[in-house]
Design a protein around this nucleic acid. Structure first.
Lengths: 339, 339
DNA sequence: CGAATTCGTCGAATCGATTCGACGAACGGC
DNA sequence: GCCGTTCGTCGAATCGATTCGACGAATTCG
C-alpha cells in the first residue's frame, strides 16, 4: 500500500512536491518532475480517493439515479447508463448507480454523506420528488429528459419536432390516412415530457399537412394495445401508414399487424420514433432514433458544469438545456400501395 | 456541513462517543445513546463517507464492470445492473458502474485508488483479461456468469440443464423433429459459458429423448439468422418445434417464421430459453426465464463475502458458486398439429 | 471497609492526501 | 556588491471520521 510519502521518499522530495507534480497547481522544475514521475511509475502509486476527497471536498463521482419500478425502467435505460458512465469518465468522473427502490432516501443519503458531487436523474416525471429533494439540499444535478418546470438543466430529443417530422415525411411520401400510436396512457397521465410533446407534434403536423391523422393511445398491456390497434387498422377507409412512438411493445405490435393480415410495408408503412436496443435488429424500418449517445454526453456535461457554479457568471435566465433535433434514419418511407 | 464534532458538542459528549453510538462497537449507556441520537436527528447529521473510508479502509462500494462493446452488452444487462445495485444496498453497499471502454484500465484504477471493496464482473469471457488483473491485484470479485477456469466465485443459470429441460419437455409434448437455435457463432467462438453449456444440454437431451434435434447455429446478423432459419424450417419432413436460446433477435426471428408462412403455435411450437426484458411483452410463449433477480442477489452476496476472507475458515475446495436450476414458465408446450 | 473489577466515556493518534505560508537559492538591477 | 524579486521546494495544518489506551466512577468481593 504505497502512499504519497513513499513516493516522496524515493524521489528525495517532500510529499507536498509530489502532490504538486500530480495536480500541476504549482510550478515544478523539469528535473524534479521527472524524478517524481519515475518514483510514481516504479512504485505503481495510485492516490487514495478517500484521502483526496476528504481534503478537497470533491469526489469526482456522479450519482446516476435510474428507475427500477416496472413501467419506468426501459431496456434502453441500460444503454443510457453505460453511455453516461463513459461520458463522465471522459471528464474524469466515475458513476455511482442508484435505484429508486428506497424512493428519495438513497439520493439524500448519497448527497449528504458526500458520495458524489452531482446527480443525473433518469426517467424524470412531472413533479418528481427527487427533484424537490435535490433542490432542498442544493445538490447539483441534471436531468435526462425534458422538464421545463424544474429549475434544473436537462437534455432531451425534441419529441414535438420528432413526431411532427415523422408525420410530415409520411404524408410527403403520399400517405393521407395515418395512424399515430402515441405513448401509453399511463405515461400521458404521469405527464411525461416525451408523451406530451409527442402528442403536440402529431397535432401540429396534422394541421400542417392536412392528412388525416388518427391518434391511438397505446397501453402498457400488450393485449389492450393489440386490440386497439386491430380496431384502428380495420377501420374503413383503411389507414396506409402507422407512426409509432410507443416502441416498447413493438414485437407484439408487429405481431398484431401480421395477425390483421397486413404486410409491412406493402399493406402498411410503419415509421418508428424513439429507440429500442440496437441488438433487437430493428434496422429495416424508417425511423427517428433516440440520440442516446448525444443525450448521455450532454447530461454528463450539464451535471458536471453544475458542480462549480462560481466558475462562470450566473446565467441570466434559468438553467441551461440541450434540445436535440430529430433526423430520419433507415430506409425511405414507402408510398402507399395502389390498391 | 455538520460533523461528528458538532453532534458531540450538542449532545455534551466526546466525538468518539458519537462514533461508538453509530457503530455500536462499544457499550454505551442508554441515556447517552438517546442524547446522541437526538443530536444526530436534530442536526440531520450524515457521516462523511470519505473520512470514514480513509480511516477504516472500507468503502462499502462494489464496482460493477459492465460490458459496452456491441455484441457483449445486452438489453437484459441493464436489469442486472439495477438488481445487483438493489441487492448490494441490502447489504449496505453502493455500486460504482464501470464500462470496459478503457479495457482493464478502469478496473485497475478503481481497485488501486480504493474506490471499491470488490468487483462484480458482467459478461465474463473465457480467459477474460479482467479476471487476470483482479487476480494479480488480489482484488475480491464475483462473476455474473459461469467460469470454472477462473479462481473466482460465480453464479449462473444451469444452461446445460435449461436447454436439456426445454428439449425434453418439447419432446414430451409429442414433438419428434425439433430445431434448436443455439447461441450465435461468435458467442461459441468466444467460448462463453452459456453458449457451450447450452449446446451440451441439447446434445444430452437428444440422446435421452431419442427425438431428432437439429442444431441451427444462430448469427448476430439478423439476415443471416433469417436465412438459416428459413432453410431449416422448410426442410422436409418439417420440424414441428423450435427451441430458441439466442433470444436477442427474437422479433426478427418471429418475422422470419411468419414469412415462411408458419403460424405459432399451430404450425410451429416455439419455446424460449433465456430472457428478454419483461417490457417487450413476450409472455405468450412457453419458456425458461433467466433468473435475473436471483443471480443478481447471489453475485452481490458472493462479492461481499469475498471482501473479508478472514471471517470464515478457508474453504477447502476452490471459490464458491451458485448454480441455478431451470424452471418452465408461461403456457404449456403445444403438441404438434395433426397435419 | 479497602481492593479489585467492571462500566462508560474521553483524549489523542491515525488514515493519506491537499494547500498555504515560509524560506533558501538564484538572479537581475543599479 | 547589495538589495529586491522570482522560483522551486518544504513543513505543517487540515479535512472528519475511527479506535486504542487510559481514566474516573460505580460496583463487587473478600
Amino acid at each position: 500500500m504505497t502512499t504519497i510519502k513513499d513516493v516522496a521518499e524515493r524521489a528525495g522530495v517532500a510529499p507536498s512536491t509530489v502532490s504538486y507534480v500530480l495536480s500541476g497547481s504549482r510550478k515544478i522544475s523539469e528535473d524534479t518532475r521527472r524524478a517524481v514521475q519515475a518514483a510514481i511509475d516504479e512504485l505503481g502509486y495510485h492516490p487514495r480517493a478517500s484521502a483526496r476527497t476528504l481534503r478537497s471536498a470533491r469526489t469526482r463521482v456522479l450519482a446516476l439515479a435510474a428507475p427500477r419500478v416496472p413501467g419506468a425502467y426501459r431496456a434502453i435505460d441500460g444503454r443510457f447508463a453505460i453511455d453516461v458512465t463513459d461520458a463522465a469518465r471522459g471528464h474524469g468522473y466515475d458513476v455511482l448507480l442508484m435505484t429508486d427502490s428506497d424512493g428519495v432516501g438513497g439520493l439524500r443519503r448519497v448527497a449528504c454523506s458526500g458520495l458524489a458531487d452531482a446527480a443525473v436523474l433518469m426517467a424524470v416525471e412531472d413533479r418528481d420528488p427527487r427533484v424537490e429533494v435535490l433542490g432542498e439540499l442544493g445538490f447539483p444535478a441534471a436531468l435526462l429528459g425534458r422538464d421545463d418546470h424544474a429549475q434544473l438543466p436537462w437534455t432531451d430529443l425534441d419529441w414535438d419536432a420528432a413526431v411532427a417530422l415523422a408525420v410530415r415525411e409520411t404524408a410527403a411520401a403520399g400517405h393521407r390516412r395515418i395512424l399515430f400510436l402515441s405513448s401509453a396512457e399511463h405515461e400521458v397521465a404521469a405527464r411525461r415530457g416525451y408523451a406530451l410533446h409527442g402528442l403536440d407534434g402529431a397535432r401540429r403536423a396534422t394541421a400542417e399537412t392536412g392528412a388525416e391523422v388518427r391518434v391511438v393511445p397505446s397501453h402498457r398491456d400488450p393485449d389492450v394495445l393489440a386490440r386497439r390497434l386491430r380496431e384502428a387498422l380495420t377501420a374503413r377507409p383503411a389507414p396506409t401508414a402507422l407512426v409509432v412512438q410507443h416502441l416498447i411493445l413493438l414485437p407484439r405490435l408487429l405481431d398484431a399487424v401480421a395477425t390483421a393480415g397486413l404486410r409491412v410495408p406493402d399493406d402498411l408503412t410503419v415509421v418508428l420514433v424513439g429507440s429500442l436496443p440496437d441488438e433487437l435488429g430493428i434496422r429495416h424500418l424508417p425511423r427517428i432514433d433516440l440520440p442516446v449517445a448525444e443525450m448521455s454526453t450532454a447530461v454528463a456535461r450539464l451535471a458536471i458544469d453544475a458542480i462549480d457554479p462560481g466558475s462562470d457568471a450566473r446565467p441570466p435566465s434559468g438553467p441551461p438545456h440541450h434540445l436535440i433535433q430529430p433526423r430520419m434514419a433507415g430506409p425511405a418511407i414507402a408510398p402507399p400501395s395502389l390498391g
